[in-house]
Amino acid sequence: MTEIPDDHPRAESLRTRHRIEDGVELGITSKQGLIAQGRGEAYDYLLGEETIPSADAAERAAAARLLLADHPVLSVNGNVAALVPGEMVELAEAVDADLEVNLFNRTAERMEAIADHLRDHGAEDVKGLAADARIPGLDHERAKVDEDGIRSADVVVVPLEDGDRAEALAEMGKTEIVVDLNPMSRSAQTAAIPVIDNIVRAVPNMTKHARELRERGASREELEAIVAEFDREEALEAAEKAIRRGELD
Rank of each mutant, 00 (worst) to 15 (best):
L14I: 14
T16M: 13
R19L: 15
I20V: 15
D22L: 10
I28R: 00
I35Y: 06
A36G: 12
R39M: 10
Y45N: 03
L47I: 03
E49C: 09
I52V: 04
A55P: 05
E59L: 11
A64E: 04
N77P: 04
V80W: 00
V84I: 12
P85T: 10
V95A: 12
D96E: 15
E100N: 12
A108R: 13
E109C: 08
E112V: 11
I114M: 14
I114P: 01
L118V: 12
G122T: 09
E124F: 12
L129R: 14
A131F: 02
A133C: 05
I135F: 02
D139Y: 06
V145R: 00
D146V: 08
D148R: 01
I150W: 01
S152I: 03
V155S: 02
V157P: 00
V157I: 10
D162Y: 04
D164N: 12
E167T: 09
E167Q: 12
L169I: 07
M172N: 01
M172C: 07
E176P: 00
S185D: 08
A188G: 08
I196K: 04
A202D: 00
T207K: 04
A210H: 08
R214T: 13
E222G: 04
E222M: 08
E222K: 09
A228V: 09
E229L: 05
E229I: 05
E233D: 15
K241V: 09
E247F: 06
